[in-house]
């Protein structure tokens, strides 16, 4: 298989396979959750489930000060990583073109050196997160094999993207193909692992907020 054949495969059949698994997996997982249903709350409401739920979807992104201080490492590294993830996925011109091709809409991009800087910061944040996971007592206790797998498949697109952007060691078609392949691996793994939180966080925050809000507590 030549380099361009490799690149064509990941852009073609590979992308198709990954997309099918990704979309099917995500849809099935979300349907699985929602269709379980929830009993209507018969207690007299003190607040609206819907608006409290929606508010918590947003507000839970920001921890209160004391909570932040208690888990400063987790919040800081997590924040930086997620911000980097967001910027690199959604504001790099080639990525936007991919979205445009798939979903038909596009938006302005950031200069590539800026995205490059976010990539470096995210890579560092991910390494910090890994080190923290391996050294912190609670995290070590909670960590399963899946957590390391998920870390790896998240890390690979960053590192391959960085290498591809800077054309290190190998030639460009191979590097870009490896980058796309790593993303395909990520989206294939996503529906079957805790990476699903990228979708279900909206549901869980909504439920959590709705349960509290129904009782008149802003969560």
């Amino acid at each position: 298989m030549s380099e361009i054949e490799f690149l064509s495969w990941v852009r073609g059949p590979g992308f198709q396979i990954a997309t099918i698994i990704f979309i099917a997996g995500v849809f099935i997982r979300i349907a699985e959750i929602l269709l379980l249903g929830r009993k209507a709350n018969l207690a007299e409401a003190k607040g609206s489930e819907m608006s409290s739920g929606l508010r918590t979807v947003l507000t839970r992104s920001v921890p209160d000060k004391a909570t932040f201080q208690r888990s400063a490492y987790t919040f800081t590294a997590g924040y930086i990583f997620h911000l980097g993830l967001f910027v690199t996925i959604f504001f790099y011109a080639p990525h936007i073109l991919m979205f445009k091709d798939v979903i038909g809409i596009s938006w302005p991009s950031l200069p590539s050196p800026v995205v490059d800087a976010f990539t470096v910061v995210s890579i560092i944040a991910l390494l910090v997160i890994l080190a923290h996971r391996m050294s912190n007592t609670v995290l070590r206790f909670l960590t399963t094999g899946e957590d390391y797998l998920v870390w790896l498949v998240t890390f690979l697109p960053f590192i391959t993207g960085y290498i591809a952007f800077h054309r290190m060691w190998l030639t460009s078609p191979t590097l870009i193909a490896m980058h796309i392949l790593s993303v395909e691996l990520l989206i294939i793994v996503l529906p079957f692992t805790k990476l699903m939180h990228s979708f279900t966080f909206v549901l869980s925050r909504w439920y959590g907020g709705a349960i509290s809000g129904y009782r008149g507590v802003k969560s």
Binding site: I33, S71, L142, K194, T200, S204
Partner: peptide, 10 residues
């Protein structure tokens, strides 16, 4: 939804 979202952040 809760279990699906837990990322073992501690």
């Amino acid at each position: 939804a809760f279990f699906s979202s837990c990322v073992h952040c501690g």
